[in-house]
Structures are given as structure tokens and as C-alpha cells.
């Protein structure tokens, strides 16, 4: 069983998109998760609903919204295009945008649960020892939510690898540009006599999933060990 250059391109594009997806969403997700876990503010319910919307909407609908807002004639997309010459349409950056929006609520949920589980009393104790709130967040809160960060990253990564509906609606299915693993598998399903290529990509998907789960389990165990024992 050999993997063709075209298939390798699909795999690498998928990994690149997934990594960028997590990289782009992580800091905003951390900020939103912290706000939702620790602050009461006007419009909190609205923010909660907006963040979680992609979980409940059909992905095709999310893709359509992206097309309307981030397309070259969209409100945000048009501005990006005019000011910076950045276009998200029909290229891998658009795939990152689609997967990031779809993965965002999952990352936020994982981080929010982790932040809510941190004993606020420890943060208060750190303040009484003279550290600023930012330092307390960096030295106490962040290390203590490390398992939640791992969970968020893994979930976001998995979501990005598997995203189909929003991506195909927003940036179409262009080999070498926007064709990630699920899109390539979808194409092969509709191609006659492509059984073996189809199976190769299916197996790669399963292996990637196993690798991601194994890595996150291993990291989670390591970070757990840091809290206990000598």
C-alpha cells in the first residue's frame, strides 16, 4: 500500500489547517472562557449563546454565514480584502477560519470547566503574597488548568481534522487548496473504482485520531503527576 503525492498533500494540508486552527483560536478561547467562568458582565448570556451557536447550528448554515461575513464582499471579509489584501475565499486560510469557528465552542467549554474547577482561594492567597492579578493568572491559574488546556487543544484539533460542512460551504472542495481529509474522502466516495485510495485515507484518519488521543492522555498523566507526590 503506497500513498500517492496527492494523498500526502491532503494529509499535510489537514494537519496544517488543524494546527493553525488551534493556534488561532486558543488565546481568544482562553479569554472568553475566563470571562464566562469568572466575570459577571452585561450581555453574558448573549456571548454564551454566540459562542455555542456553531455546536447547535447545521454546519452548512455556519458555512453560509461565513460566506456572507468573511467573503470578499462580506462585511469583515471585504474590509480585510481592501485593507490588507487578505482573501479567505477558496484557499487554506479560509479552511482555518471555518474550522476555527466550528472548534471554538469546544475549546471554550474545556477551558471554562477547567477554570471553574480551580480553587479561587489559591488565587486570593497568591494576591496576599504581593503578586499582581496577571502574575497570579500566569503562575497559579494557568498551570492548574493545564489538563483542561490539553483537553481543549485535543478537542479543537480533532474538530478541525474532521470538519466538513462549514468548510465545503465556505471555501468549496478544491484539491491542493481547500481539500482536507474528510473532503477528499467525500470526493473519493463519488469516484468510481477509487476503493483503495478511499481506504488509505480512511486508515490515515483512524491513525491520526488514535495518535491524538494517545498523546493527550500521556500529557494529561504527566501533568497530573506534577501535582502529587514528591
Amino acid at each position: 500500500m503506497t500513498i500517492s503525492p496527492a494523498e500526502i498533500e491532503v494529509i499535510l494540508l489537514s494537519l496544517k489547517v488543524a494546527i493553525w486552527c488551534v493556534a488561532v483560536s486558543f488565546i481568544p478561547a482562553l479569554l472568553v472562557a475566563w470571562l464566562l467562568a469568572r466575570r459577571d458582565f452585561y450581555g453574558k448570556t448573549l456571548v454564551t449563546v454566540l459562542v455555542h451557536l456553531p455546536i447547535f447550528l447545521p454546519p452548512v448554515v455556519v458555512g453560509y454565514f461565513l460566506l456572507v461575513t468573511l467573503g470578499n464582499r462580506g462585511v469583515i471579509g471585504g474590509w480585510l480584502h481592501e485593507q490588507f489584501g487578505i482573501s479567505l475565499i477558496f484557499n487554506w486560510k479560509g479552511v482555518v477560519a471555518a474550522t476555527a469557528v466550528m472548534a471554538f465552542p469546544f475549546i471554550v467549554r474545556a477551558l471554562r470547566q477547567a477554570i471553574e474547577a480551580v480553587d479561587k482561594n489559591l488565587e486570593v492567597a497568591a494576591l496576599t503574597l504581593g503578586r499582581s492579578p496577571l502574575m497570579v493568572f500566569l503562575t497559579i491559574t494557568l498551570p492548574l488548568i493545564a489538563p483542561g488546556i490539553l483537553a481543549g487543544i485535543t478537542l479543537g484539533f480533532a474538530k478541525a481534522l474532521g470538519e466538513f460542512g462549514a468548510t465545503i460551504t465556505f471555501v468549496a472542495n478544491i484539491p491542493g487548496e481547500t481539500q482536507t481529509l474528510p473532503l477528499a474522502i467525500f470526493t473519493l466516495l463519488q469516484t468510481p473504482d477509487a476503493e483503495s485510495a478511499l481506504w488509505r485515507l480512511v486508515i490515515v484518519s483512524v491513525l491520526l485520531a488514535f495518535a491524538a488521543i494517545a498523546l493527550s492522555e500521556w500529557l494529561a498523566r504527566r501533568s497530573q503527576a506534577r501535582l502529587g507526590g514528591r
Binding site: 492567597a125 494576591l127 496576599t128 504581593g130 506534577r226
Partner: peptide, 19 residues
């Protein structure tokens, strides 16, 4: 604010940082 009051606090529970 708390962090600039220069007051050390020993709580009922130890509140040591586990990590």
C-alpha cells in the same frame, strides 16, 4: 488593592499551591 497592602495572611486552610 490586596496585592499592594503588604499584609501577609495565614488562612484556616493551608492554601498551599499544589504545583
Amino acid at each position: 488593592p490586596v496585592q499592594r497592602r503588604n499584609i501577609g495572611f495565614v488562612f484556616q486552610e493551608h492554601r498551599l499551591f499544589p504545583h
